[in-house]
């Protein structure tokens, strides 16, 4: 295994907060020990307030750790911040790196100057990002006039302009419509394939995790509680999928479909919900079994969402 791109050892961070008149200490991150190898794509998930943003700020050198150590791209983030800035790109879902009153193109030009890109490198990289993120039409538009989805694509391009080895994305798809999410994910997959970029993303969206990440770090109250694949996580907590079937006529509860559990019925059995474990059976088999019992008009399969998985993990620990 080559030198890790992120390595933390017993990393911890406290905040002092004012609680009325009294001051108390809140532990935001606690004893976090992680190694991420170059080229990995890691989903960093957990409930709000689990310490994700704090960890990202420590990775980027914005916050100083209270305890333990951290190296990013082989550098100490706080002391070597300026060298690190050349190797890391961060997309904050909530804060913009673009100049809101300027056309997108101008922001890219300024950022190219900020990262001292050569004219050739600037042109090649801008062209590549513009093409892959479909920004051609937006280049002349002031940032403040972009829709959320458009702005997020421009933000991603801005953060990746200097071809960072490590890209950190904090809730990159929050608030985006289905199509915008899809485009962004496809771009990130392609970027990783062509440049071997390491990805670390925090998200509440299971689709992001499934399509982008081959490894998951799950944090609870500042501590790491799971490190492994998504499939492994689903297995651990028994994350089930739900099949929703709309039937042609009212029917009794479908309690005898093999390998499923009846979760609920609406409209005197016209719509029923069956839970199944994807490890034990498949959607096709469940559908076949339901079809033997009633005429199916329509169906949908609901993915377990991140929140649900997180809640289950948290519940099993408390």
């Amino acid at each position: 295994m080559s030198a890790p791109i992120i390595e933390t050892h017993e990393l911890g961070r406290d905040f002092r907060v004012r609680d009325g008149v009294r001051r108390r200490t809140v532990v935001a991150v606690d004893r976090l020990s992680v190694r991420v190898a170059p080229g990995e794509a890691v989903g960093y998930i957990g409930a709000n307030g689990a310490g994700k943003s704090t960890t990202i700020k420590m990775l980027a050198g914005i916050l100083v750790p209270t305890r333990g150590s951290i190296t990013t791209c082989g550098l100490r983030p706080v002391q070597d911040r300026r060298r690190l800035a050349r190797q890391i790109g961060v997309v904050f879902g909530q804060r913009s790196q673009l100049w809101w009153d300027l056309p997108v193109r101008d922001s890219f030009r300024i950022l190219a100057a900020i990262h001292s890109l050569s004219p050739v490198a600037e042109r090649e990289r801008t062209d590549e990002l513009v093409e892959r993120l479909e920004l051609q039409e937006l280049l002349g538009t002031p940032v403040r006039q972009l829709s959320l989805g458009q702005r997020m694509r421009a933000e991603v391009a801005a953060a990746l302009l200097h071809s960072p080895r490590l890209v950190v994305l904090d809730e990159p798809t929050i608030g985006l419509d289905v199509l915008s999410k899809q485009r962004l994910r496809e771009f990130l997959v392609a970027e990783r394939r062509t440049h071997g970029t390491t990805l670390l993303l925090t998200t509440h969206d299971m689709g992001d995790v499934e399509r982008l990440c081959d490894r998951i770090l799950l944090v609870d109250r500042g501590s790491l509680v799971y490190d492994g694949t998504l499939a492994g996580l689903s297995r651990t907590v028994g994350a089930q999928r739900i099949m929703v079937v709309d039937l042609a006529s009212p029917a009794g509860d479908l309690v005898d479909v093999p390998q499923t559990r009846h979760v609920g019925s609406e409209g005197s059995g016209m719509r029923q919900r069956l839970a199944f474990d994807p490890e034990a059976t498949t959607a096709a088999r469940v559908l076949a079994a339901v079809s033997e019992r009633a005429e199916v008009l329509d169906l949908a399969v609901e993915e377990p969402d991140v929140e649900d998985v997180v809640r289950r993990v948290y519940a099993s620990r408390r």
């Binding site: 980027a60 914005i62 300026r82 904050f92 990262h115």
Partner: peptide, 8 residues
């Protein structure tokens, strides 16, 4: 925070 991400 964005300033922190730039090498100046």
């Amino acid at each position: 925070d964005v300033f922190y991400l730039r090498p100046q």
